[in-house]
């Protein structure tokens, strides 16, 4: 990730991690991206339930995809009962 590696003096005790993985973007693993058709979407949230990467975002109104982390597995598109998600080549 191109960041400066710390010296031993700057690390937490007990080798505890000091960053959350949200700082590590896994979106570049993707070859297909899920695209949501908001017209078709019934907000059943099955995509949210099944997403292994916590990349479906529900704001209480509509769903969206967080492409910072989505690895493009396609589970959301496969499981969508109304076919509102399409996998599109990057």
């Amino acid at each position: 990730m191109g960041e400066t590696l710390r010296s031993w003096k700057e690390l937490p005790l007990s080798a505890l991690p000091f960053k959350l993985s949200t700082e590590f973007k896994t979106g570049d693993w993707r070859t297909f991206r899920p695209v949501v058709d908001q017209e078709k979407c019934t907000r059943c949230l099955l995509c949210w339930v099944y997403c292994p990467d916590m990349s479906i975002v529900w704001d209480g109104q509509r769903i969206s995809v967080n492409y910072d982390y989505c690895k493009g597995c396609g589970i959301c598109a496969r499981e969508c009962p109304v076919k509102a998600i399409e996998m599109v080549k990057e």
Binding site: R6, S7, W8, A15, L16, P17
Partner: peptide, 13 residues
């Protein structure tokens, strides 16, 4: 507690 450490930090730990 007890993460995975690679060659970039294990030595420092």
């Amino acid at each position: 507690f007890g993460p995975l450490d690679l060659y970039d930090y294990y030595f420092e730990h």
